[in-house]
Amino acid sequence: MTEYVVLSAILFTIGCVGVLTRRNAIVVFMCVELMLNACNLALVAFARQHGNLDGQVAAFFVMVVAAAEVVIGLAIIMTIFRTRRSASVDDASLLKY
């Protein structure tokens, strides 16, 4: 059990650091997915531990939301790339003070 949780934490941390440090929007995106899946892993593990299906249901919800998010997110990234010829998240920083 502990192994699953530790793995989940490691994956989450990697994803988190990736989101905070990487500039390429695609990589940031992948890191977000990594974090989501780390959560899923934890949810499924806890569901197993508790012997009910709550966590598994939640994991399915996360997957559905993640799929929708990927669709919209990639579309946005595509559009930004088309206009700016760059996928760097730091370039899209006009919406500020």
Binding site: C16, V19, V28, D90, A92, S93, L94, Y97
Partner: peptide
């Protein structure tokens, strides 16, 4: 305070974290 709104997504993500 408004300097916090710097437009960099990553810094927003950091504050979220």
């Amino acid at each position: 305070m408004r300097r916090l709104q710097n437009g960099y997504v990553r810094s927003y993500a950091l504050s979220l974290l």
